[in-house]
């Protein structure tokens, strides 16, 4: 990745301008051509460095008012299959295996579930529990959002 790629990532991270020809405007800012910006963005997407261009949504505004971290206690030899199964559900936006702290924190698989109501999130968690056969889990609803942003690239 050279400086032009980095500039494209930096600018598009901040937000694509809401004008008819946004890539032309980005090109002017960098000092290159519109065709170049489009070609490079497509290449970054095909390489997977950029997953896609898309909106960041204010979830509450679209009615997605409930979100919970659901932490599962999964036997080591089942983490692979349970993690893969849970990841296939569209209601689950994040799924990570994390370190445990024996005696203090035993849940090793973390998922985030979003829903249109608190009840629906609880129902989803219960259904998932039955589907994957894991009974020990905690539903940690968030009742206040203090910060939500994205990780900044190192340039």
């Amino acid at each position: 990745m050279d400086e032009i790629d980095q500039a494209i990532i930096r600018i598009t991270q901040a937000g694509i301008p809401l004008v008819k020809e946004p890539f032309e405007e980005i090109a002017k800012e960098i000092g290159t051509s519109e065709d170049e910006v489009i070609a490079r963005l497509r290449k970054l997407i095909s390489k997977g460095v950029v997953k896609r261009l898309g909106i960041s949504v204010n979830q509450r505004k679209v009615g997605i008012v409930a979100n919970a971290v659901v932490a599962w206690k999964v036997p080591k030899n089942r983490v692979e299959s349970v993690g893969t199964m849970l990841s296939s559900y569209k209601e689950i936006t994040h799924c990570y295996e994390r370190m445990t702290i024996p005696g203090k924190w035993e849940c090793n698989l973390f998922t985030v579930i979003h829903g249109y109501s608190r009840d629906s999130v609880e129902e989803i968690a219960k259904k998932l529990s039955e589907d994957v056969g894991i009974n020990e889990y905690l539903v940690l609803f968030s009742n206040e959002q203090f910060k939500r942003t994205s990780a900044m690239p190192p340039y």
Partner: peptide, 30 residues
């Protein structure tokens, strides 16, 4: 374009941006 601008000014959308794969960018830990 005008609908998108309205969704932005109503606060439904925060911005349209590139979504990065932090792992592919490398050197990130969390």
């Amino acid at each position: 374009l005008s609908r998108t601008k309205r969704l932005l000014s109503d606060g439904v959308i925060r911005k349209i941006r590139s979504i990065l794969d932090a792992k592919k960018l490398g050197l990130c830990s969390s």
